[in-house]
Amino acid sequence: MNKNALEYAIRYGFIVLLAGLALFFSLYASGFASPRSAVFIFQSVAITGILALGVTCTLVVGGFDLSIGSVATSSLMLSAYSMVVLEQSAFVAVALCLVMGAVVGLINGFLIVKMRVPDLLATLGMMFLLIGLQRIPTQGNSVATGMSLADGTVAEGTFSAAFLWLGRHRFDLFLDRLLPVPVVLFLVIAGLIWLFLGFTRHGRLMYAIGSNERAASLVGTNVQRYKVVAYMISGVLASIGGILLAARLGRGDIASGNNLLLDSVAAALIGFAVLGAARPNAFGTAAGALFVGILLQGLTMMNAPYYMQDFVKGAVLVAALVFTFYLSSRRGGRRNA
């Protein structure tokens, strides 16, 4: 029975905690329990969550992608640059960013699979490279209409309305202008990744690679291809995150997106603990992102100072990791006994 209690705690503990937290804030933080507040939480985690779903794919194949934050900021700068300086349409800007994300993922995969650079190091290198690269075309400045360029002219282009729609439009749902586009995209992408990882043979093979790469290759799986694909998914999702950020901000701000990497990695790792999965999974990642969002929103509404945010996130992450690795290993040990 003790065993069952432990099993129950591992499986539902996190969800119970999430519900308890929501209940607590509903009771003690006035205005927390409202549709607008809920949407605000979703909006605050949408971009982080999309990036986290990408990292989840690389975690599934036993890898890691540290370059997602810099891919997102590069995508932010690239979309701004292509519209403001190159005066391209929204469609071109989005297409450029997606291609950039896919190419970065391809290069990451190539470095890891063919050059045999360890995943953390390869993507760390790529992170540095992109942080530097995104500053070169604008000499380190942010991109906005009216900025002066190197040749002395002034940038005439503007963010097109269609592009800004991606970040700012809100769909009606029961209430007028309730659901922002990034939230809808986050939910759609979470659903797609959940289906892909959990219910397709490709997802199943990716989990097999993450668990025992050699065994997976000996049943005839093209391990290298799946790994490259995982990094490409991660790159593309990170570039989508960057597009949404640019569309929300309306300028190519060089300083934004600093926290994206840590927040999204944290969400993916917290996701290990959800439903006792003890492995990366899309549902857990989305729940992990929401958990952090609810906690921060609640604390903010209870007047906790903003500088406590990172501390709270870190504490949640450490607790979730202990939950996953310690409790689950005890469970495994008992099961074998």
């Binding site: 289906l195 219910f199 397709t200 043979r201 490709h202 199943r204 093979l205 989990y207 097999a208 993450g210 668990s211 025992n212 050699r214 065994a215 997976a216 000996l218 049943v219 005839g220 492995r279």
Partner: peptide, 28 residues
């Protein structure tokens, strides 16, 4: 080291090489 996928249950271990045959449009 060469065959067992420790994270999977019996059914998924067994059918691993032939997942294509157990799926329609990639859905298992």
């Amino acid at each position: 080291s060469n065959a067992v996928i420790a994270d999977f249950d019996i059914a998924n271990n067994m059918t691993l090489p032939f997942l294509r045959a157990f799926s329609t449009f990639s859905f298992l």
